[in-house]
Design a protein around this nucleic acid. Structure first.
Lengths: 254, 254
DNA sequence: GCAAAAGTGTTACAATTACACCCATGC
DNA sequence: GCATGGGTGTAATTGTAACACTTTTGC
């Protein structure tokens, strides 16, 4: 589609210039960083997508992202690209997912893309640009490139990590009741979890801790709920040895 | 074909040529595929490294790998690079690990590298080139670039997956006794596992199955050991819900 | 018979699920 | 008082670890 043309995008004033060393034996490729930003919104797990206005895939929805620049790491690149969509400080967690390299993934020419998983806590409501919107991960619109399957990878990663790490901190507000946390877990996991057991598992593992405060009951009354918070604001593996625990892991486990 | 004719590294005979579309807004980078090939050898987990003969890092040990070519995926590229080291058919498993993008990771200029994890069953003994050798993962020599930490990532990935998947199939020979399998798991996990419990856990999960045959006892006598094999030669998640099992997962779990 | 090696029986323990019951509040 | 929602008590279930004991072989 754009075979080795000396100009970019039809604009003859922009020359093709490699920004780094390259040779026939070391061919270079544009590299982009993509972000799968997830948030639980209204009891539903949503992903942030923007609607493409130009070909290819005009009208289809794509993941936010953009080119890797010469002096930044992929992680910095994702953060920079996201800055045009949301405030980066609102991202409570960001981790690398996978790299896609199918030569045909972009019809304009070959690009390599590395996807990241980003999480925004439920209490925030970032202001989005006009072309950007939240979509339920369970009912994606028509997506551009391979972005639909990348969302699937992100979802699998999040769901797995909710079970054996404390990633929940990145989806929950600073303090919350167990009922509120349950709603977040149910939305993210896609299946039902009881508040009773969620509370006990996370408390026993030391993932949650009580703040000592209470939330006022609703208008219908009811016992006031205790407020909790996540004990750590960074990713921790909380159940490292699902099986085959090393012999003396027991003490360290408590 | 190659619009630019700047030079690389001061050598005027090597032109700088982008092989794909690129622009100031879409800078391109050489991309390499790296392989962390692991094998249990003599009760020890080893990684395949080759010794660099030229700068940078002359004399240091590096992961096998090389440039991504214009028409191949990263997975195909890893397989192609490995073909110069071992027979690719000996690789029982290959999966993508992570992508490193630190602009300073290669002193010659910026490159992006995507690492893969490859596993070779214990019964094979590939013929290696002269510059290539096995090294214990627990006692790595001086490594080049960021390859030492990439080996660390691979090790963590393998150890985690031994617990909740059937990856063991890629480290074990076609058939084996439980004692032999135990040795492989101990080497790969880095801590002790009893044959008794290993057998029961893997049998109950359906990961192992008896072949019906027996291995002859050693010269010292002893009850002949039953031979087992992995039920599936491809990666399967065998313990998908470490916690927060969906309500009716029980039936599907048996 | 005896030593060696493999595999099973059994118990103990840990973690999770399920469900009944008690607690604290608004009206 | 009573409905509502939150939290705890307790039993059942599952899965793994530990260890004794039985089985099967070579010598």
């Amino acid at each position: 589609m754009y075979p080795q043309s000396k100009t970019y995008g039809g604009d003859p004033s922009i020359p093709v210039v490699p920004s780094v060393w390259s040779s026939p034996e070391r061919p270079a490729y544009p590299h982009q960083a993509l972000a799968v930003v997830l948030q639980v919104r209204g009891g539903r797990l949503d992903v942030m997508l923007w609607r493409r206005g130009t070909e290819p895939f005009a009208g289809a929805w794509a993941l936010p992202g953009g080119p890797l620049l010469p002096d930044e790491t992929l992680g910095a690149s994702v953060a920079r690209q996201l800055a045009s969509k949301v405030e980066v400080a609102q991202l409570a967690h960001l981790e690398q997912l996978e790299t896609r390299s199918d030569p045909a993934r972009d019809p304009r020419g070959r690009t390599v893309a590395t996807a990241y998983l980003g999480l925004i806590p439920a209490h925030l409501d970032p202001v989005l640009p006009d072309d950007t919107a939240w979509h339920a991960v369970g009912a994606l619109p028509v997506t551009a490139f391979d972005h639909g399957s990348i969302v699937g990878s992100a979802l699998a990663r999040l769901r797995a990590k909710l079970s054996y790490t404390n990633v929940g901190f990145a989806l929950a507000p600073p303090t919350f009741t167990v009922a509120e946390l349950r709603e977040i877990y149910v939305a993210a996991l896609g299946y039902d979890v009881t508040a009773t057991n969620l509370q006990r598992v996370l408390l026993r593992r030391g993932v949650l801790e009580a703040t000592g405060e209470q939330a006022p009951p609703g208008r219908a009354g009811g016992r006031p709920a205790a407020l909790y918070r996540f004990a750590s604001p960074t990713l921790q593996v909380t159940d490292p040895f699902a099986v085959f625990r090393p012999p003396s892991a027991r003490a360290a486990h408590d």
